[in-house]
């Protein structure tokens, strides 16, 4: 019996040794889900690793959660897309530099049947009003992500209060993928970022029902942390990655990422629609 006990302990120790192996220098990047789930980071990180030897550990979260993770000191760098939340983060003194690295746009996707008659329109506020008036099923993220923040701003612009909406308004409290899965299952509308939409496979009857409003511009920023509040973060390594993202090489890598012939993210220098 004793020998078996020793065996168990040894086996556990060997396994633990296996999980705690040493490796290359790395940083933790708290990133919004869209740049990760869409496959962009998977595509460009190996290129960065090749030039720098640095591993980037991506923790993909909604923007609100990603910023909170950095506030707690659990990330070395953030990559997010919610201008208002980023302003607050900078004002609190957590961030020291904030640079735009890419942009694309948001879209409203919905079932092909289009009960709220969105197809053909380009005014997102009018679109939200149509959904409200039709009482058409609508999936809301409700997770303090960048997309969720924009959705709330649009309801406000439309002078509508989603907390007073009927049962057609489904606050799922989940990520973009979960919202798209829910919309696909319920034939519902939802606000989505184009990157996640293009890479999303379970579309069922969902199509793009509204796009092309300038208010739907979606910019992605990389924020370096202030050493005053984050003395333990690996700021030197993080700076290398942030610099690379906005460098010629990094920007080219972002612009080169396509899925099924579609560009998911525009590098910062690409002209925005006006």
């Amino acid at each position: 019996m004793k020998s078996r006990f020793v065996f168990f302990v040894c086996a556990a120790l060997i396994l633990l040794g296996g999980v705690a192996r040493a490796e290359d220098p790395f940083i933790v990047l708290a990133s919004t889900t869209s740049v990760d789930n869409s496959g962009l980071l998977g595509q460009i990180l190996p290129l960065f690793k090749k030039t720098s030897g640095i591993d980037v550990h991506v923790v993909a979260l909604g923007t609100g959660q990603a910023l909170d993770t950095a506030r707690r000191g659990d990330a070395d760098l953030v990559l997010v897309h919610d201008p208002d939340a980023e302003d607050l983060f900078m004002k609190e003194g957590h961030g020291i530099t904030r640079r735009e690295l890419a942009w694309n746009d948001f879209i409203i996707v919905g079932a092909k049947a289009d009960p709220a008659k969105l197809i053909g329109g380009h005014d997102v506020v009018a679109g939200f009003k149509n959904i409200w008036n039709a009482g058409a099923p609508f999936v809301s993220r409700g997770d303090k992500s960048g997309t969720d923040a924009l959705e709330k701003r649009i309801w406000k612009m439309a002078s509508l209060d989603p907390t007073k909406a009927g049962p057609w308004f489904k606050d799922i409290g989940g990520g973009m993928g979960a919202a798209l899965n829910a919309a696909a299952g319920l034939d519902a509308y939802t606000l989505a970022d184009r990157g996640t939409w293009i890479s999303f496979k379970n579309r069922a009857t969902l199509i793009i029902t509204l796009e092309g409003d300038l208010r739907l511009l979606n910019r992605y920023d990389v924020i370096e942390l202030d050493p005053k509040l984050h003395p333990k973060a690996k700021l030197d390594l993080a700076k290398k990655f942030a610099d690379w993202l906005v460098s010629k090489e990094g920007q080219a890598a972002i612009g080169a990422y396509t899925l099924e012939g579609e560009k998911l993210f525009h590098p910062e220098a690409d002209a925005k629609p006006t």
């Binding site: 991506v58 923790v59 979960a178 999303f200």
Partner: peptide, 24 residues
């Protein structure tokens, strides 16, 4: 764990991720 690719991604967290990407 954070579901970090190549570092803390396990079978179950990979399944959760693929589900969220609609890769059912």
């Amino acid at each position: 764990g954070g579901n970090i690719a190549g570092f803390t991604r396990t079978m179950t967290t990979a399944i959760a991720l693929q589900t969220s990407m609609g890769n059912l």
